[in-house]
Each structure stands twice: as structure tokens, then as C-alpha cells.
Amino acid sequence: MGIEQFIDNEVKSNDVVLFMKGTPQFPQCGFSGQVVQILDHLGVPYKGLNVLESADLRDGIKAYSNWPTIPQLYIKGEFVGGCDIVREMFQAGELQQTLKEKGVAVAAGA
């Protein structure tokens, strides 16, 4: 399976996917860590994929979304954005909105 197929499959078979540096338990980049904090705060179940484990994945994801940096957040197969956009959306309450609209459970009171 090519890297693009792998990414496409992950993005389509998981509600929320975060391509990041490190793991949710041990983020290895400030920007990735910020998105992990936001998702954990919202109590959203998500799949973390560590791009540091594979150069193909690290380059493949940038080509897949035409987005040059990591982290990258996907909700229901759709690219939402990197750290700036996710943080901006979270602060504006738009991230919670998007999750609810797409039928992804958000912890109460988030």
C-alpha cells in the first residue's frame, strides 16, 4: 500500500486523525503539543499518527493536503488545519461547532 493510500485510509476510517510529531502521550513539538492539549480538553477521541516514525509519512502528508507543516488535523476525512487554525477555531468556539456538526462526540462542558 502506497503512502498516499495509507494516509487516505487512515483519514477516512477514523473520525478524528492528528498527524503530529511525537505521540499524544509524548508530543515532541510545541505546535503538535498545543493541538493535543485542545483535543484532550475537548475530550475528543482521536488517532495520533507520529510522522517522525516515517520520512515517507512526513513528506506524504504534506503532499496529500498541500500543507507544508506538521501538525495536521483531519475531521471526518476533511483537512481542518494546522496548529494556528485549530487554536483560532477553538478560541472562537468553531472547532466545537465543527465537531458537533460532523457528529463527533465532545465532552460535556467543553
Partner: peptide, 25 residues
């Protein structure tokens, strides 16, 4: 927002993520 940021990244002609590690946009 994604499209706006992509326009900025395209303008930076591939420097983004390489030479330029972090650009909070």
C-alpha cells in the same frame, strides 16, 4: 482559513516548513 494560509505558503515558495520552521499565521 486553510485556503488563505495556503495562499501565503505558496507565496513563500517552498520555504515554509523547510528554511522557515515556524510561522504563526
Amino acid at each position: 482559513r486553510v485556503q488563505q494560509h495556503q495562499l501565503v505558503y505558496n507565496a513563500l515558495k517552498g520555504n515554509m516548513g523547510g528554511v522557515l520552521h515556524a510561522l504563526a499565521l
